[in-house]
Design a protein around this nucleic acid. Sequence first.
DNA 1: ATGGAACAAATATCA
DNA 2: TTTGTTCCAT
Length: 752
Amino acid sequence: MNETENDPILAALNPPQREAVTFGDGPLLILAGAGSGKTRVLAHRIAYLVERRNVPPSSIISLTFTNKAAGEMKERVAGLLGGSLHGAWLGTFHSIALRILRTHGELTKWGASFSVYDSDDQKRLAKDVAASLSLDTKKYKPASLLAGVSRAKDDGRGFSDFEVPGVSASPHAKVFYSFYKLYTLRLQNARALDFGDLLLETLRLFEERPEIARRYAEKFRHVLIDEYQDTNRVQYLLAGHLSSVWGNICAVGDDDQSIYGWRGADLRNILDFEKDFPGTKIIKLEQNYRSTAAILEAAASVISHNVGRHKKTLWTSRKGGVPVVCHTASTEEEEAQWIVEKIISLLKEGQKLKDIAILYRTHALSRPVEEALMDRELRYVVYGGLRFYERREIKDAMACLRLVAQPYDPVALKRVINEPPRGIGDKTVAAIFSESEARELDLFATMRLMVEEGVLPPRASRAVAGFIELVEGWRIAHAEGERLGDLLSRILRESGLRGALERAKEDEKEAERLENLEELLNAADVHAAEGGTVLSFLDRAALISDQESGKPGWDGMTLMTIHSAKGLEFPCVFIAGMEEEVFPHALSSSSKEEVEEERRLCYVAMTRAKDRLFLTRARVRRVFGAEGLFRPPSRFLFELPEKICPRDYPTARPCPEKRGFTVPPRIPPKSEAAPQKEYAPEAKTNGRSLSVDPENCDYKKGMKVRHPKYGDGVVTATDGRGPTARVSVDFRRGEKKKFVAGLSGLEILIDD
DNA sequence: ATGGAACAAATATCA
DNA sequence: TTTGTTCCAT
Ligand SMILES: Nc1ncnc2c1ncn2[C@@H]1O[C@H](COP(=O)(O)OP(=O)(O)OP(=O)(O)O)[C@@H](O)[C@H]1O
C-alpha cells in the first residue's frame, strides 16, 4: 500500500482528498471551503478513473461553469495523465449542451443549422421586439425584460410554461408576457438559440425523447461537476439526466462561494444534494492549502457576517503570514498609483508579474489601473471586459459570415446591411422587414422580390440589389469550398468593412480595429486548420467570445473581475474599489440576499490570494466623465478583523442605526494636497447630515435630495422601487432631471 | 430618405 | 468612455 508514495495521482493528497479520489460508485458530494483542493480532487479523480479503474475517457463528462475553469481542468488532468484523455467531454454546461443539440438538431424545431446568439445579439433582438410592441422603453427597458426572460429560462420556464395573463394581471405581467412571446417567435424565425435556450432545449430534448437522454446517460459512467453551488435549475436537471443510469455523480462546491444567484444559481441544488441523490457520500475537506493564516482569517471574518450560513472548518498550516493591507487613496488615480508602487516593490522582492492579480467588482474599474500600469510599462492582461468577439468590427465581420451560412438571420442582416453606409437606411430596412413578415418570406427572397417589383425608390433599390449580389457572391464562394480564411478576407474586402477602417486609420482607434481584423483572419485560419467550419467558427465566437492572445510564456499580471477569478489563485492579490455602491454594487444592495451574495463575492476575491492581499479604496471616484463622488468605504472593510486592518478612515464611520454612513466634515491630513471641495461641500456649513444608504434608497415624493452636479432639489415623482427605480427631481436651480436611483449619485438629505 | 454632426444618456457580474 | 438619439443639410 506504499505505492501511493510515488503515485503521481495519489501522492499529493491528504486522506479525505484521497478518499474522494478513489471513491467507488454512487453519488459523491465534496463540500468544502475555499482552497481546500476541491478542483484538485476532481482532476485527480478523472485521472484515477482512467488510469486505475480503466474507465474509458469517452464515458467521462466533466462540467464546469466558465471557459477558464474548463481550460484549467483540461490542463490539470492532462498533466497527470499524459495524453490519454481523448474522448472525454470536458467543458462548460453551455458548450456541452450545444454539442448535444448540434448532434440532434434535426429533432428540434430549429433544424440542424441554428445559430447561437450572444448577449449583444440578444439585446438587439430585445430592442427590436420592444419596438415592435411599441413599448414605452422608459418604463419597460428591453434590457430588463430580457433579463426576466433569461432568468425564466434559467429557472426552467420556457415561454410555453407561462399562462396567458388574465385581465386582472399587473400591467408588467402583461407586457412581460407579450415580450416573451414575440421574443421567442423572433428567435425561432431567426433559427437562433440564446444562452438560456442552449440548456433549456437540451433539457427539453431529453424529456421529449427519453431514448436520447438514455443514450447519453448510458455513455457517461461518471459525471463530475465543479462549482456545483452555482448551478441553476436547468443545469441541475440536466445533471440528473446524465447520471440517471450509472448514478455516479460527483459534485464539488462551497455554498459560501455562490456568486451567480443573478443567473439563476440555486443554492438548494447543493444543500439538497443528499436528498436528490440518495445514498450520497459526503466528504468534507478542511485544510486550506492556498492561503496564509492572515488571509484566511480576514476572509473568514468577512464571510461570518452572513447569517444562516453553514459553518465550515477551514484551517491552514501556513501560520502567520504577511498581514492584509488596507489602503485608502483620495482619488481613483491615486489608488491606481498606490497599487503600481506596491507592485514595483513586490517585484523587487522577487515576485513575478504573473503572480500578481488585480481584481475588481466591475470592468469599469480597470481603466485607471491600466493607465497607471502603462505609465510604468508593466505588462498586464485584462480578462473579460470588451472581449475579442464582442468588438464592433469583429461582430460586423462575423455577421457577414453568418449571412453566408444563415441568410435568414435578421440580427446579422440588420447589422451589416448598411455597414459601411451603402445607402440602405432605416426606412428601407423597415420596409424589408415588414414585407418579409407580411409575405412570410425569407429576408433575402423578400429583398429580391422588392427589387424586381420596383417597390423601393430607385436609389434604395439599386443599393439593395448591390447588397444581395454581394452576399450571393460570398455564398457561392463558400459553396465552392473557399477556405474559411480566404472567404473572410474576401468578405472584409468586398463589404467595404476593411476599406472604411483603412481610410480612417490615422485614428489610433481605427488602426487597432484593423489589427483586430487581422487577428480574426488569423483565428479563422487556425480554426479551419483544426477542421472547423463556418458554423463552428460562429459557435465558438458566441460561446468563447475571447481570443487567446497567442503569446506563449507570457509574463504579465492579471486584471479581471472577481467573477472570472473564481477558482483561480495568485500569490499576490489586489482588490480595488472597496467602496460602498461599488462593492457592494449599488444595483445589488437592495435586499439582504443580494448583499450577502456580494459578501460571498468579497470572500471569493480574498481567498484567491496565497501570500499577499491588498484591499484598496478611493475616497472619490468618477462614474463616467462626471465629477467625482465621495464614496464611503465598503461595509466589508469594517467586517475585517480589527487587528489585521485597523480602522483608519477619518472621513466616514458606519452608522448602525441607519444602516448607512454619515459623512462628517472631512479633515484632510496635512500630507494631502489638493482642494477637496467636491466632498459634500455644504455638509459642514448647514448642520445637516448627508446619508448615503444604499440598502434603503427608496425615494419618496417630496424628499429632499442632493446631486453632486445639479445641487439640491426635491423629488417630484418616482417610478419603481429600489436601486433601479427612476427618480424625477426638480432642482432649486430650475433644472428638472430623471435618474436611475442606484446610479444617480443622489444623496438623500435628512434634517437634523 | 440618408448620413453626418452635435448632443444627451448611461454603464454589473458570465456563458 | 461609449453608445444612442435628434436635428439638419444634402
Ligand atoms: N493535498 C495537497 N497538498 C498540497 N497542495 C494541495 C493539496 N490539495 C490542494 N492543494 C493546493 O491548494 C490549492 C487550492 O486547490 P484547489 O484550487 O483545488 O482548491 P479549491 O477547493 O478548488 O478552491 P476554490 O474553492 O477556492 O476554487 C492549489 O494550489 C492546490 O495545488
